[in-house]
Amino acid sequence: MTSVVGYSGRAALDALHAGGMVCVLIVDTLNWLFVQPLRGKGLRLRSTVEHFVEFGVRSMPIVGLICFLVGVIIAMQSAYTLEKWGATKFIANLVGISALRELAPLMTAVLITGRCGSAITAEIGTMKVAEEIDALHVMGLNPTKFLIVPKFLAMLVAVPCVTVLAMFIMILGGFLLSCSPLVGVDPVIYYEQTVNSLVAKDMVTGVVKSIFFGITICWVGIYRGFQVEGGAEGVGRKTTSSVVTSIFLIILLDLVWTTLFYFA
């Protein structure tokens, strides 16, 4: 009994400590993003663009491929049910709504977590182990300005951009399958059905979600990176936990936003 109390107490304290650390990280990032540039301490734009290329442009092929396949899969699953009522043209509604409101933001976030969230943790963790973070401090360079802000800005822009492209690719996947001889929906009808069923709010829902997913991926990656202790093994362990924490928080956030948009 005491061990259960002790365990949950320790877990609660750890969670509180982690929450505090993340808050410090957020305040520091916002300070170097908005306040310090006003005092003449500029942003590192070149580094930001390089990170944007890494997080956004280089993620496109894999995100595009996966989202195309997911589009094909949802179309096929929908066809399985709708064929029984001869209502295959409604595949367009299902694919469109799922892609925009749910699957494109989610798949993009999960893939970018695996590709870039882990890389952020590994980079910062390795730098910490190799005393490079200490070297920044000693040189009078602020790690937040130098390492965190460029990654944060790049992620903030990259994830929504990739998500919007992923939405179209997913719809394209669904379109190609539905209009193939396998299902045989008329392309014009499919197009009209898609355009008529979707409203701007569906897209906004997806984009808003993706912005918060991007912030989550970045901050979890950075936080886990700074937690690394003790050599290569520590880097490996925190990289894994960065991906797990990130995906868990993304699903949790997804639930919150979906609930909000459901009632809104």
């Binding site: 390795t126 190799a130 005393e131 490079e132 200490d134 070297a135 040189m139 009078g140």
Partner: peptide, 18 residues
């Protein structure tokens, strides 16, 4: 930060940015 501009440090593992 100002004081640090007048100091330098050589780290054990050199800590060069890879």
């Amino acid at each position: 930060t100002d004081a640090r501009k007048r100091m330098g440090m050589c780290f054990q593992g050199s800590a060069l940015f890879g």
